[in-house]
Structure formats: structure tokens, C-alpha cells
């Protein structure tokens, strides 16, 4: 599903130096820019999953079913799937921001 295609910002980050030195610490502007990009990417998924899959496209998705065949896909997104994705989105955000913070403060956090 789409969360996979938008998630990569977390993985794309080059592994920065995480020693105690301020070497490589980023500027406040760069920090804020990356934060915004991450938030926008995650909110795009948030929107597509709930308003898209759960509401606007739900009827079309209902033609397909979840693995095992028990639940129509649109129904599943409206009642369970979007909630699972929400939890996942916050998890990705927490990991991404913790790394970004560590880079910004030069590993001291």
C-alpha cells in the first residue's frame, strides 16, 4: 500500500556522524526543512489512507478483499486498516525525528 512508497524519508537519510563531536551538525534551517519534508510525506499517506481509501475510493476498493477474503478492502480501510496505518505513521515519525535531533545536536540528546 502507499505507506511503503512514502515512508523512505526515514531510510534515505545518510548515516551521519553520531559521535559526541559537533562535527557535521546541521544548521537550524536544514533541520527545519527536513522536519517539514518528513511531516508532509507522512501526512500525505495519512490523507490517502483515511480520506482516500476509507472514504472516497472505498466503493472501488470494495471489489477487492483482504487476504483470506473475509473483508472488503474499502470497508477494512474505513474500520481497521487506516488505524493501523496511523500507528505506523507516528512510529516512523518518532524514529525519524529522534535521528534528526541526534544529528542536529551532534549526538547529545
Amino acid at each position: 500500500m502507499s505507506e511503503n512508497s512514502d515512508a523512505p524519508p526515514a531510510a534515505e537519510e545518510p548515516p551521519g556522524p553520531s559521535s559526541g563531536l559537533r562535527f557535521g551538525a546541521m544548521s537550524p534551517e536544514a533541520y527545519w526543512r527536513r522536519n517539514i519534508v518528513c511531516v508532509l510525506a507522512l501526512l500525505t499517506v495519512w490523507f490517502l489512507v483515511s480520506y482516500g481509501c476509507g472514504i472516497l475510493w472505498a466503493d472501488k476498493l470494495d471489489a477487492t478483499r483482504t487476504p483470506g477474503g473475509g473483508i472488503k478492502l474499502g470497508f477494512w480501510f474505513a474500520q481497521q486498516g487506516s488505524i493501523f496505518v496511523f500507528v505506523l505513521l507516528i512510529a516512523i515519525y518518532v524514529v525519524f525525528m529522534n535521528r534528526l535531533d541526534a544529528k542536529f545536536t551532534g549526538g547529545k540528546s
Binding site: 507522512l42 501526512l43 495519512w46 483515511s50 474500520q79 481497521q80 487506516s82 488505524i83 507516528i90
Partner: peptide, 13 residues
């Protein structure tokens, strides 16, 4: 279900 959980994404981010 979505309305009362999706808000937490906004809150967190």
C-alpha cells in the same frame, strides 16, 4: 473510528 484516531497523527506531527 478514523476520526477519533486520525487526530493523533496531527497531534503527534
Amino acid at each position: 473510528l478514523m476520526g477519533w484516531t486520525g487526530g493523533y497523527v496531527l497531534l503527534a506531527l
